[in-house]
Design a binder for these strands. Structure first.
Lengths: 193, 193
DNA sequence: CACTAAATATGACACAGATCATAATTTTGT
DNA sequence: ACAAAATTATGATCTGTGTCATATTTAGTG
């Protein structure tokens, strides 16, 4: 099931401007959201206002399934990183997609597996490893998605919010890793080689 | 799909004694494991030998799907907590289960969603919260599964291995939470009220 | 019941990373 | 090309939790 097919079925496209909140923790899930264009981040926020990035979702992907499927209030905020167009698919329709479209079902299982894999990896890091190790792991993970010579389009703040560290610690850590030759940086940007 | 049906299909039951290793990190997944009897823990281990409990699986449940489904080497050890009987279902059979048994597929999706929910919760805790908050969260989570008056059958060491803390920190933290009346303990055991 | 092992408890000290303050550099918008 | 904003950088403390050492309590076993 892709976006076009959903549109063909007559589902409405909703437009959100950058930094709009799509849903908040504590609220009851009613939809699964398919992204037509744009990008969203899923973040949990501590009492002191510190953000942790649970995931980032781009055009063609969907988010918000787990809470809907197990019927639990959301844990996280979902916020647009750019102007974004979404299609909200209600519970009934989403369940019928799973039941009636074997490909969609298989695909969803693999998507959930990928996310579990990432979260397991990060849990090990946050539970057991110190700053430099965490940083190297997330950086290598992110480098997978880009091609040689390109650089990572993430700020130190974002790395901090993915690793549970503070910006200053990330800045010092990245510098250290570059010094040891474990990563390559050009003008502060982390580059794949 | 339940254990009996797998047995009826002629799948072999393998027996493991307590503390046997079923698989190790780095190896390539070939099976999904269904638990007939017993219990296993999934743990990642740091270079310094510190364990983190990624999950615990009991009779009737299965484990090892994500790595198999996305075709990536295991991240964790899986080790029996007790004498355990397993049925190993190979990739082909597992895929056919998903394709041909809609109920199984739906069930798997919900199981994966539950695990994602737990891991998201723990990631937020490990990334943003300090010892006491982490402890209270995991304790409340575990208390959900038992009835009033019963006590948690986990040691401080196990709480430590679930929260990324050290035993001493857990011991001090539990004592503190009990002192503040946020949890109830009897002879050191954490009791549901 | 006694004996041993495992789990819980407690104190002293160390240290990674947080926090705070301020500066330098790079990016973005006009 | 310039100003403003965002990001990166760096130093000086502070602090929660790890580490280590040792003691006490509870559970398990013949």
């Amino acid at each position: 099931m892709n976006i076009q097919q959903l549109v063909d079925r007559g589902l409405k496209i909703k437009t959100y401007t950058k930094d709009s909140v799509i849903y908040e923790p504590g609220t009851q899930p009613r939809y699964v959201y398919f992204i037509k264009t744009g990008e969203v981040r899923m973040v949990t926020v501590s009492d002191e206002g510190k953000e942790f990035i649970q995931g980032v979702f781009k055009a063609g992907q969907h988010f918000g399934e787990p809470a809907l499927l197990i019927n639990r209030p959301y844990l996280a905020f979902t916020i647009t990183n750019k102007d974004t167009q979404l299609i909200a698919v209600n519970k009934e329709d989403f369940f019928s997609l799973i039941k009636n479209e074997p490909d969609f079902s298989m695909n969803l299982i693999q998507t959930l597996s990928q996310r579990l894999f990432y979260k397991s990896m990060m849990l090990e890091e946050l539970a057991n490893e110190k700053a430099d190790h965490r940083l190297l792991t997330i950086i290598n993970y992110l480098l997978h998605d880009i091609t040689e010579g390109e650089n990572l389009k993430v700020t130190r703040q974002e790395l901090a919010d993915m690793t549970g560290l503070r910006v200053e610690t990330v800045i010092r850590g990245v510098k250290m890793l570059a010094g040891k030759g474990l990563i390559k940086t050009v003008k502060g940007k982390i580059v794949k080689r």
